[in-house]
Design a protein around this nucleic acid. Structure first.
Lengths: 199, 199
DNA sequence: GAAGGATGTCAACAGTCGTTGGCAAACAAT
DNA sequence: ATTGTTTGCCAACGACTGTTGACATCCTTC
């Protein structure tokens, strides 16, 4: 009945099992496969081969493919606090830089985006991230509480659009953009979506 | 040796065949399936059932699944001309409105985005659209020719990001945005990406 | 050292996939 | 009426999928 799970970086949740190494290897392989292949083409057999174990172990530890996916993509964006009066006017730049750091160091985000586009469970997971993580940030800096969802959605559209064109579709001009360029162009956009009076 | 193909809306290319109705039904069903299911889950069997024909007919008319996909998603964004001096300062609004019209009346765009995320051929098709259709528009209004690719990529990131959150992931706050709101918020962004001096 | 559970391998299941070749019916041309 | 071509259905192939159960092996605990 042990449904949820945790990565090896989170100790203290129950006794360490002897199979933790295998569990971790499965999760790591699953993240990579989901990120590069998407949900359907990331087969359990391929993931198991990457993790150097038998496919049946995946089923034993994660019940089925959906359970594996749920365990593999647990995302905490760790969005920074921008409620301070000084930071509020820099929210755009801070958030764009944070997003770039996240996307370039965490393949789980690419996996989730790839899966979210073709898989209902993945799409709902992304909706949850917008609701639970992006919306609170917008609430910190947005003047009118009633406009918070709309402004958070606008911010998501620009940030996810950048990730889509740059990290998933790999459109050459988007890949060629320097980090500083991206920040310089996108920061004012995000800042405006969050704090400017509604047009 | 008849490799290429044409929809029934394009006459004049060879004699009309008796099977044009079937070919059209296959393409229509394929577009809908690719749009809602993505490449992998849009099975030829399902498409054939939607078109009320046998799966083998799909192979006869389009060689294989890749050929069917290539024939089903032929996209012309019909981007408006914004080179006029008066229109140049309205390019942002014009382009955003045009994009919304396109996305809401053409399921092929959703199909292409869904497929492009998990299929290499789909991704290359999207790169081609950016290169052949969006880039020329940027060239019309962008001051420095050297910055055209970067600015087109920025425009693509915002427009595709909106389509992603609103039409594919269907994030509730993005779906809830009114058309006028979207135009009012995004038009200045696109305008700035295209015409503002580089920051 | 015996017992019991955790860990892992192997072989197989039922189903679906893209794809193929053969054959019947409808049509066109002579 | 004859051919030849187009259009369509049917049955099947080999490959691959997620998933399952039986069996071996290791570690822990008494």
């Amino acid at each position: 009945m042990n449904g949820s799970d945790s990565t090896s970086t989170v100790p203290g949740s129950g006794a360490p099992r002897r199979s933790d190494a295998t569990r971790g290897a499965i999760l790591a392989a699953a993240r990579e496969r989901f990120a590069t292949d998407g949900y359907e083409r990331a087969t359990i057999r391929a993931i198991a081969k990457d993790a150097n174990i038998d496919p049946s172990m995946v089923m034993r530890y994660y019940r089925n493919k959906e359970g594996l996916f749920a365990a593999a993509v647990a995302i905490d964006l760790r969005l920074p606090d921008v409620s301070g009066a000084d930071r509020r006017q820099d929210a755009g730049r801070i958030l764009v830089e944070h997003f770039l750091d996240m996307w370039e160091n965490n393949e789980v985000l690419t996996a989730l985006l790839r899966v979210g586009v073709t898989n209902q469970a993945g799409a709902e997971r992304m909706q949850g991230i917008l609701r639970d993580q992006l919306l609170p940030v917008a609430r910190q800096v947005c003047p009118d509480p009633e406009q918070v969802p709309a402004r958070a959605a606008l911010m998501a559209s620009q940030l996810l659009g950048l990730a889509l064109t740059r990290y998933v579709l790999r459109m050459p001009p988007a890949v060629g953009l320097a980090r500083a360029e991206i920040v310089a162009w996108l920061a004012p956009t995000i800042q405006r979506y969050l704090t400017a009076p509604s047009p």
